[in-house]
Computed example of a mutant assay.
Amino acid sequence: MGNYTSCYFPGPSNSETAKLFDSHGNLQRLKLPLTAAELMLEHPGHAIASVEDLRRTRLISGKRADDELLAGKVYLLVSSGRVHCRVSELEMAIIDLACKKKAPKLKPCGSKVLPAMGGEVITGLPGLQQGSHRRWSPALEPISEGF
């Protein structure tokens, strides 16, 4: 008699992988152990943000280079210019929808376009817009000094 379980070789499970949404909105499964620095070397100009932290604080906080990614967690690859910026409710809804295991497939709906929310479109997930983040550009005026 055979034992079926002795012939079973399980594939990667959530206990040994993490999920990463890249700058194009593609989902990647990452084999662990892996540090944030290894991913940032592969994607220059980007930082790794935890979706769990993002939900809790509504603020994009990048992982430190020596932080290890945790099994079963979801991470975002965001432009390093977006670190320490707030996310809008629309951005959070899109992230939540993308993080669901069986997200419904959206049908193309013609020419509907979302209005820009104060700036350029961010990288991270398709359809995400920048929200309330605007770059500060001060007006510099010369100072006259009397002699």
Results as ranks from 00 to 15, higher is better:
L27R: 09
S6F: 07
G72P: 00
E16T: 10
E141C: 08
K31V: 07
L90S: 12
E145H: 11
D66P: 01
R134G: 00
A139R: 13
C109V: 05
A103F: 03
K73E: 11
P142H: 11
K73G: 00
P142Y: 09
Y8N: 09
P115E: 14
S23N: 14
A93N: 05
P108T: 06
Q129L: 14
N14C: 03
L69R: 03
E141R: 15
Q129P: 00
M117W: 01
G11M: 06
N3M: 10
A98G: 00
S61N: 09
I143V: 15
V121D: 14
G124L: 08
C99F: 02
S144T: 12
Q130D: 03
L114C: 04
E68Y: 04
S144P: 00
G118P: 05
C85A: 09
S61W: 00
Y4H: 08
L76Y: 02
K100S: 13
L128N: 02
G25W: 03
A65T: 06
K63I: 02
S144D: 09
A18M: 05
S137T: 13
E38F: 01
T17C: 12
S15T: 14
G146L: 15
L76K: 01
G81N: 09
G127F: 07
A65F: 02
R86I: 05
L128Y: 00
F9I: 13
G119V: 08
K63E: 04
S13P: 00
D22L: 08
P44A: 08
E89G: 03
P10S: 15
M92Y: 03
S132H: 06
R134K: 13
R86W: 03
L128W: 02
L76D: 03
S23T: 06
I60H: 02
L34E: 05
I95L: 08
P12K: 05
H43Q: 10
A139E: 13
G124S: 08
C7Y: 12
K102R: 13
S15R: 11
T57S: 15
L34A: 06
C99N: 07
I60P: 01
R56H: 09
G45V: 06
P104D: 07
L70H: 04
T123V: 11
P138I: 12
P142V: 11
R64V: 01
V87T: 07
S88E: 09
T57H: 12
E38Y: 01
H84Y: 11
R29I: 01
G62R: 11
E38I: 04
T17H: 01
S6E: 15
S80C: 07
V83E: 08
S79M: 02
V83R: 09
R86F: 07
S80D: 13
T57G: 03
P142C: 06
L41P: 00
R86G: 07
A116L: 11
E141Q: 15
